[in-house]
Amino acid sequence: MANDSRLAAWEFFGSELKRRRENAGMTQVELGSRVFVSGGYIGQFEQAIRKPQLDVAQRIDEALQTDGIFERMWKRLIREQPYTEYFAHVAELERLATKICEYAPMVIPGLLQTPEYARAVFLAGNPLAADEYIEELLRGRMDRTQLLKDATRPVYWAILHEAALRVPVGEAGVMAGQLDKVAAMMRERTVLVQVLPFAAGAHPEMGKMMKLMEFEDAPPTIYTEGVLSGSLLDDPAVVKRIQASYDLLRATALSREASLALIESAAEDYRRCASTT
């Protein structure tokens, strides 16, 4: 029900945008040119297919002289999201993507996480947080994982650095369960996963998490994340450069078969460790 109400609110955002644009005598293309997006994007905003980023909402207010109404609606709607502000738009785009490629240098990606592993990640970053807050974060994370269970799921390809397998998150049993889940999804051919081994040595994107998303009717985007911040990039030149970096990582990583064997071996190591503690 909460998701339905958020969708209805974004639909209102879109209908209000269309009404005010038409009252201003602008086409979608004309408004798009003023706020530095395509006319097609404006149409997708109006249909609530895509959500604008904050700076676009602010430029729409300026172009239509709406006294900040779209910025205020955007901030209200984002606050109602179960994700941090800088990630909320990315979560929306994941649902629209036809293909998602990720590189994870240290932590298993959120879309692949088990509840136990995700809880350990949140507790590590919020050691003094109340249980209710951790559970709220966990619900949002687990809602995202449903994406890969849908019949219309995107093609999902992840490259995990071996460090993500070897650095314990939570107890040994948690790590064993997490790696078992990744291995099971690989065997079921739900996802494609490769491991970049320690033996591969240094590479240009060594410590940089990246998520590449492709869409049916929109340009690809890149998401990278820092400390309590994230950047969503769609400049064609930047996207092309990062895609090339991802291709190099993919070429350097182990084959799917060797990756699965390494993940299963690491899971077994954690299982043995858990049984002796």
Rank of each mutant, 00 (worst) to 15 (best):
S245W: 13
A258M: 09
S275A: 14
D234L: 05
S245I: 07
K240G: 14
E257H: 14
R271I: 11
S259H: 06
D234I: 03
R256M: 05
R272L: 15
Y246W: 12
R271D: 05
A274H: 10
R271P: 01
S259I: 00
V239Q: 05
P236Q: 05
D234M: 04
A237E: 06
P236D: 09
L233Y: 05
A244L: 15
A267Q: 03
R241Q: 15
S255K: 02
S275T: 13
S265E: 10
D269S: 05
L262I: 03
R256Q: 06
R272E: 11
D247R: 06
R250N: 05
L260V: 06
I242S: 04
V238N: 14
L262Q: 02
A274K: 13
V238Y: 11
L248T: 09
R272H: 12
L249N: 01
L249F: 01
V239C: 11
R250P: 00
S265I: 10
D235A: 12
P236S: 07
D247G: 08
A244R: 13
L249K: 00
D235C: 13
A267T: 03
L260W: 06
E264N: 09
D269N: 09
L248D: 08
L260E: 01
Q243H: 14
E268C: 02
T252P: 00
S255A: 03
I242N: 02
I242K: 03
L260D: 01
L249C: 03
P236Y: 11
R256L: 04
T252D: 06
L262M: 08
L233F: 07
A244H: 14
Y270K: 05
R256F: 00
S265C: 06
A244G: 08
E264R: 08
A244P: 05
K240E: 14
V238T: 14
D269I: 09
S259T: 02
A266M: 13
E257R: 14
A274V: 13
R250L: 08
R241M: 12
I263P: 00
T252A: 07
Y246A: 04
S259C: 04
S275E: 15
A267G: 10
E264L: 08
T252H: 02
A261R: 01
D247P: 02
V239E: 02
D235H: 06
A267D: 04
E257C: 04
E264M: 10
S255Y: 07
S259A: 04
D235W: 06
D234F: 09
L262V: 07
K240A: 15
S255F: 00
R241Y: 12
C273N: 10
V239H: 00
S275P: 12
L248F: 13
T252Y: 00
K240M: 12
S275D: 14
